[in-house]
Structure formats: C-alpha cells, structure tokens
Amino acid sequence: MSDFTLLVADDDIAGKSANALDKCHSMKNLEYRLKKDPGLQKKMYDIEYQTRKATAMKSTTGKGKPVGGGDGGTPPPIYTAPITIPVVVNIIERSEGNVTQAQISSQIAILNQDFNNNNPRTSNIPGEFAGLVANANVTFALASVVSIVDSRTSWGTNDAMKFSSQGGIDATDSSNFLNIWVCEIGGGILGYAQFPGGSPATDGVVIGTNYFGETVAGGIYGKGRTATHEVGHWLNLRHIWGDGRCRQDDFVADTPSSDAPNYNCPAYPTVNCQSADMTMNYMDYVQDDCMYMFSNGQNDRMRALFVPGGAREGLVN
C-alpha cells in the first residue's frame, strides 16, 4: 500500500469553480482532523487495507461469492445485499422555516435516485464508460429531523455545527445513522464529509443551506448532488482525480487517471493523463446536471465498508 496517501497536492489543484465556489472541503477537513487525532491515519490505513483485501478477494472468487463455497464459513468479501441507511437531518437555520420540508424530501429522493442508478441523465454516458455504471443498491430513509435557529452567517469547516456546546447539534448515534448537518458553512463552500475512521462525534456530512436538496438559490449546484458527492466521501470514495496529479490515484481501478477536477459541464472527451476523464462521475466537481454515475469499482469500494468488521457495519447489522 505504498501508494496510500491522505494528503492533497501542495499546489491546491482543486481550486474553485468559475463562480468562486469551493465544491468540496472534505480533504481540507481531513487535514484538520489528522492534526487533532494522531491515531486517525492508522485507522484510515487499516480501513484501506481491509477495503483492498475485500475487493481483491471479490475479483478472484466470482464477483462477491463467499470464499470457501458459502457453506456458513467465510462471509462474502463484498457486502452484496440491499442497504438501507437511516438519515438524521440536523438543520441549523438563521430563521425558522428557512430550510423547507420540500428541500428535505427532495434531497432524500435525489440520494435514492443516484445510489440506485435512476438518474435520468445516465442515458448520456458515453460508450467508453457505459459498461462501468453501478447500481449501488443503497436506499436512504429519513429517520428524523432536528432543527434549531442560530443567526450566525458562517459555521466554518472545523465541525462546530456538530456540537451543542458550540451552538450546534450533537450527532445522533453515528454508528447506526447517517447524520447530515445543514447550515451556512461560509467561504463559498458547498459541503464536506468525514471519511470512515474518524471520531463518532463528528461523523457525517455537512451541506450548505443553498445546496441541500433542490433550491433555486443554489443555481447550477442547487439540484441536490452536493449531498451525493459528500455521501460518496462518507462511504470512502476519493475525488475522481485522486487529489493529485496523474500518478496519484483514487484507489479505484475502473476510473481513469486525471490530474485535476473538472468544472461546469465539460464536453466528452475531456482528455488528461492520456485518457478521457470520467467527468460525469459524482466524485468530480462538475455542476449537478452533468454528474450521473458511480463506477462498479467505486461501488465495490463503498460496499467493502459493510462486511463484518467493516467501518460502516453498524448500518446493516
């Protein structure tokens, strides 16, 4: 695993979109968390080791069939059953009713659409990638909504919104629920997520108010796919370009190498690193209407978290 890294290239290749929005702050938040928790790197290394072991076993045992014949011995290396993830939406709004029920409902619907390969734009996938489109078979079910009013205009990215002691909302049993915090992040940041392995107290996804669900205020990023992207991180996916140049990977074999994110709605083919970028992947930085697929390799990577002993096992057991 000499290629495993948790750091972003020093030249900040991610940058910002043309309208000065920072699509995702997950890697920067990870840097912050690594400084606060000296043991986090080892935890994430161990999760990566298990993930690679599981995906390697799948490739040599018949696409997830149990090793040893499936007679009650070793479980499948990749979790193959349908997954339902209960969601707690924690809303910190500047005035009561600022985040509507319509936003909440639309966001859950969009997550279910994207993680079950029901995005209608998937029909636009170029032939090169058509055989790689995954149905993750993950359903998100709204469990509860917790809402408070706070007038501050910026919560930042150091997880203050996740603690009642700092004016935010404490996480609800993060081993058994996906917590989504909706608030004014500030700094032009759309959202960020915590990767598997981090503290249970901060585990979950943060989405800016204007980018949660379907909103006119979000513009080209107001179609609810910031959450799809961030939940991808929460399920251990890296950015499609690996947060580095051509030789730094996202640890997924079927996603082409790239050297930087793509923005707006790029034409196919957009070629970097001597191959066409999978710009329509949910883990790139394109606008919401132009992302519409996870790959099979990404699906395996996510599902490796749910096997016995996996980092997200509690969500299915």
Rank of each mutant, 00 (worst) to 15 (best):
F4G: 05
L6E: 03
A9P: 00
A9W: 05
A9G: 08
D10Q: 07
D10C: 00
D12R: 05
I13V: 01
K16D: 02
S17G: 12
A18W: 04
L21M: 07
H25N: 11
S26R: 05
K28R: 14
L30G: 07
R33M: 12
K35C: 06
Q41W: 06
Q50Y: 13
T51E: 03
R52F: 14
K58S: 15
S59V: 14
S59D: 07
T60Q: 07
G64S: 02
D71N: 15
D71Y: 15
G72V: 08
G73F: 08
P76V: 13
I78T: 09
Y79K: 07
A81W: 11
V88S: 14
V89C: 05
I91L: 10
E93T: 04
S95Y: 15
E96S: 15
N98V: 14
N98A: 15
V99G: 12
Q101V: 13
I104Y: 13
S105M: 10
A109R: 10
A109Q: 12
I110D: 07
N112M: 06
F115M: 00
P120N: 11
R121S: 15
P126M: 01
A130C: 01
A130L: 01
A134V: 09
A136W: 04
T139G: 02
T139A: 05
F140A: 03
A143S: 13
V145N: 03
V145C: 04
S147C: 07
S147I: 07
V149R: 02
V149D: 01
V149L: 02
W155Y: 06
D159A: 12
D159Q: 15
K162N: 07
F163C: 01
S165P: 09
Q166P: 00
D170H: 03
A171K: 10
T172L: 15
D173K: 04
F177T: 08
N179P: 01
V182S: 03
G186E: 01
G186P: 03
Q194C: 10
G197E: 07
S199A: 12
P200A: 04
P200Q: 03
A201H: 08
A201F: 12
D203W: 11
G204V: 14
V206K: 06
V206Y: 09
I207K: 09
T209S: 13
Y211I: 00
Y211W: 11
G213A: 10
G213R: 11
T215R: 13
V216Q: 14
G219A: 09
R225K: 15
T226P: 02
T226I: 12
A227R: 03
E230K: 07
V231R: 01
G232P: 09
H233T: 00
L237H: 11
G244C: 02
R247E: 10
D250H: 09
F251I: 00
D254V: 09
P256M: 00
D259I: 09
D259M: 06
A260I: 05
T270D: 14
T270H: 15
T270G: 07
V271C: 02
N272E: 13
M280S: 09
M280K: 03
N281R: 00
Y285K: 01
V286M: 04
Q287Y: 13
D288C: 03
Y292V: 00
Y292W: 12
Y292A: 00
M293E: 12
F294Q: 01
G297H: 02
N299Y: 11
N299A: 12
D300T: 04
M302W: 09
G310P: 14
A311N: 04
E313D: 08
G314F: 14
L315K: 05
L315W: 15
